[in-house]
Amino acid sequence: MSIPQIDALASEPLDEFDARILADLARVQDQADPPPAGLTDRIRFELSLRALQAELAELQGMSELETVRSQSAPEVFDTISFTASRVSLMITVTPERGRDDTVRIDAWVTTPGVEIELWQEGSKRTARADEDGRLAWDDVPRRPTRLLISGTPPVVTPTIEL
C-alpha cells in the first residue's frame, strides 16, 4: 500500500474515519488532561465576587497562641487577622477534639450583627455575629477557605489554608 501524501489527503472531504478520530481525541483528552477539579467552582466564585464588587481584605497578622487548659498538654491555636476599609476580622482556628480532619473557627468582627459566609469549594455556611461581634463555625473541613463579610461593599478574605 502506498503511503498517502498529505496534500492528497488534505483535499478530500471529511469522512466517518475523521469523525471517529476526532471523537476519540475528545475522549482521550478528557482522560489524559482533564480540567482540574473545582476549576469551574473557582471561576464562578470569582465572577460572583466581582458581581458583588467585594473589597478584598488585607492579611494583617498571623500568630500562634498557646494556652494551658489543664495540667497536661497545652493547646495551640492559630489566629489570623484581616483588615479592610470599614471592618476588621480576627479568626482563631482550633483542631476539634479527637479529630484531625476538621476544625472549629471562632471569629471576632468589628461590626456587630453582621452576616459572614464561610466559603469552601462546593459549600457555603452562613453565621451571624452577636452584639459583641462574635460568631463561630464548628465541624469545618480542613480545606481552602474564604470568608465573605456582608455589607456595602461586601468584604472577602484571601484564601485561608486551615
Partner: peptide, 12 residues
Amino acid sequence: PTRGRCLAALRK
C-alpha cells in the same frame, strides 16, 4: 468541508 492539512497529517 475538506479534511485540511492538519487532520491529513494526523490521519497519515
